[in-house]
Each structure stands twice: as structure tokens, then as C-alpha cells.
């Protein structure tokens, strides 16, 4: 079965400048055979969803270390749904308290990867959860 490459948008929502993780994972995803688009910093939810639409992405990976995840992550899911992109897998990472994760999952973020997560775990999760379109 010739599989289509997984296409992932790696995005930094808000004004947070911590992009070590986002850039590192961009490289790791590319090495894992995915097609990666890194948006750079200062993305609004609208910009991220627009990128997902334009790029026909399978996955959106959100990274936040400034404490704005509860605002931004659900907003991205909501806008994706509004654009009929509910099939796009949304995952997140960064400095995110464990107690916030249940709410984020309820809002439609498939998984949250905290500091110290092995990159293999993240790649495996995406591979096994990416949805057929």
C-alpha cells in the first residue's frame, strides 16, 4: 500500500518566542518521513487554520510555553471545525499543567506532550492517530 506522506503544520500560537521544541520536532517529523510546514512565531488561531487549509494538512501541532494553551488550543480546533476540517488531528505540547489536559482533550486536542516526552512517542502517536480524509 503506497501511503501518502503525512502533512503536518507545526505552529507557535501567540507571542511566545520559545521555539526550540517546535523547530526540533519539525526536523524530527521530517526525518520520520512527514511533510512539515513550520509557521514561525506569532500566529493567531486564524492564521494557523488558514495554513492548515492551504496546505491540506493532516495534522496541526501546537506549541506553547507562555501559559496561553487554554485559550489558543481550543480556539484552533473550533475554527478547524468551522472550516470543515474536523478530520485534522490536533496535538499540542509545551509547558502545560497536567490538570489542564482533560479540558483540552474534551475540547478536541487529541494529545498533549509535556516536557521530557520522547520524540518517538510523539511520532508514533501521530502515525497511529492521523485520520483518513
Amino acid at each position: 500500500m503506497a501511503e501518502k506522506k503525512i502533512k503536518i503544520i507545526v505552529a507557535k500560537p501567540g507571542l511566545d518566542g520559545h521555539d526550540r521544541g517546535a523547530k526540533l520536532l519539525s526536523r524530527i517529523f521530517a526525518e520520520a518521513g512527514m511533510e512539515v510546514v513550520y509557521t514561525g512565531l506569532r500566529q493567531t488561531p486564524e492564521m494557523i487554520v488558514e495554513a492548515a487549509l492551504q496546505e491540506d494538512a493532516d495534522v496541526v501541532g501546537l506549541s506553547s510555553l507562555s501559559g496561553v494553551h487554554n485559550y489558543f488550543f481550543p480556539k484552533v480546533v473550533e475554527l478547524l471545525k468551522a472550516k470543515k476540517l474536523a478530520n485534522v488531528l490536533v496535538v499540542g505540547g509545551g509547558i502545560i499543567p497536567l490538570e489542564d489536559i482533560p479540558e483540552l482533550k474534551k475540547a478536541g486536542i487529541a494529545e498533549i506532550f509535556g516536557p521530557g516526552t520522547s520524540t518517538e512517542v510523539i511520532v508514533d502517536f501521530i502515525r497511529s492517530n492521523v485520520k483518513a480524509k
Binding site: G14, L15, G17, R42, S66, V68, N70, F72
Partner: peptide
């Protein structure tokens, strides 16, 4: 907080969610 560092007032659209955070 990040809006001040990035030169935006707290009521700027890009400051949404960031006010007083870090």
C-alpha cells in the same frame, strides 16, 4: 508580559490570552 516585550498594548488582538501571563 509578552505584549509589553513585543510592543503591543494589552488590548491589541495579538495580546489575546497573553495579558499578565509571563
Amino acid at each position: 508580559h509578552l505584549p509589553t516585550q513585543a510592543g503591543y498594548d494589552s488590548d491589541h488582538p495579538l495580546s489575546m490570552g497573553e495579558v499578565g501571563k509571563v
